[in-house]
Design a protein around this nucleic acid. Structure first.
Length: 298
DNA sequence: AGACTGACCTGAACGC
DNA sequence: TGCGTTCAGGTCAGTC
């Protein structure tokens, strides 16, 4: 599933193929994929990209956007979220590759002979939209779809002190807080479980009872696991294809708890537990990550 | 206002 | 074999 490291790998892949290229047109192939495209009179339409030059792809958390414009600078952005199964693929010759043609949801064609960009998304949780870039903070513009998302944990402008206080002010549990993209972005179910294991925190620990040091340690663990995943993901993607398929080497070798229910904890040997959690699963070591004794949401 | 749940979606894996 | 069920989970509208 694409979380921050996977989206960053996609962003880096797009970065080597898109900047400087002139868009011919964006085509949608599935109505759900264009559901975020605003119909407001003053909002850009999908054909606003035509003739624009693409710039360096940007990312915040799991959101991606490619600023585009003319000689005066970028005014619009091709914005995207991969959802749970979205991929960007590049292909020479203007046709999709075998194996993923069935799930093509959008196509970006260019006014050059370079590769065509395909948005492939089996489950259509992902989306693409053309949006106006709006001032967000000094010297920074983001698309409206991204404005409500907190800075991600790898953002140089991420304020760790502010985050530390905000986390401990929450009346929730630590895993719920990690998945809340308005507190910090980029963390999904997999890396939340991995980070919690690293700092021996049970997913149901109350955020309000964490110490300042607990929270600082958790942030360090989240950053660490993501940095390692980016490093691993970067080696497992073909240079020509920007691929998000969940099968990178990292997933096979390095996960400590996610998907390892019943297997021994890499630290203490106790069988990893999988537990239902808010329509998904939590994975943890019952010995290293002791369940809190107080009521869960205190 | 903040916390939380269910709906959205498809295909693989599973049980009988 | 085949059919129905379960599972995967990011986000957001809706609810409390």
């Amino acid at each position: 599933m694409p979380e921050l490291p996977e989206v960053e790998t996609v962003r880096a892949g797009l970065s080597t193929h898109l900047p400087g290229r002139v868009v011919d047109r964006l085509e949608f192939r599935h109505p759900r994929t264009s559901r975020r495209q605003s119909g407001a009179a003053d909002a850009p339409r999908q054909d606003a990209l035509t003739g624009c030059v693409l710039q360096e792809p940007q990312r915040r958390g799991k959101y991606l956007w490619v600023p585009a414009g003319n000689d005066d600078g970028a005014s619009v952005a091709l914005t995207a979220h991969l959802g749970m199964s979205g991929q960007f693929r590049l292909s020479e010759g203007g046709s999709p590759g075998p194996g993923w043609e069935r799930h093509v949801r959008a196509v970006l064609r260019f006014r050059d002979d370079g590769p065509t960009l395909w948005f492939v998304d089996q489950r259509t949780f992902g989306w693409i939209s053309v949006e106006a870039l709006q001032p967000h903070s000094p010297g920074e513009c983001v698309p409206p779809s991204v404005a409500h998302v907190a800075r991600d944990v790898l953002d140089p402008l991420f304020d760790a002190d502010l985050w530390n206080r905000a986390l401990r002010r929450r009346r929730s549990t630590v895993k719920r807080a990690l998945l809340d993209q308005t507190l910090q972005s980029g963390v999904g179910n997999i890396y939340a479980d991995e980070a919690l294991w690293r700092v021996r925190l049970h997913p149901d620990r109350a955020t309000g009872r964490l110490t300042r040091a607990d929270a600082a340690g958790l942030l360090a663990a989240v950053r660490e696991v993501m940095a390692e995943a980016i490093a691993a993901g970067g080696t497992s993607f073909d240079a020509l294809y920007v691929n998000v398929n969940g099968s990178s080497g990292y997933f096979d070798r390095s996960l400590a708890v996610y998907g390892r229910a019943g297997e021994p904890c890499r630290r203490c040997g106790a069988p990893i537990v999988r537990e239902r959690f808010a329509n998904r699963s939590s994975h943890f070591c019952p010995r290293c990550q002791r369940r809190p004794r107080y009521a869960p949401a205190m």
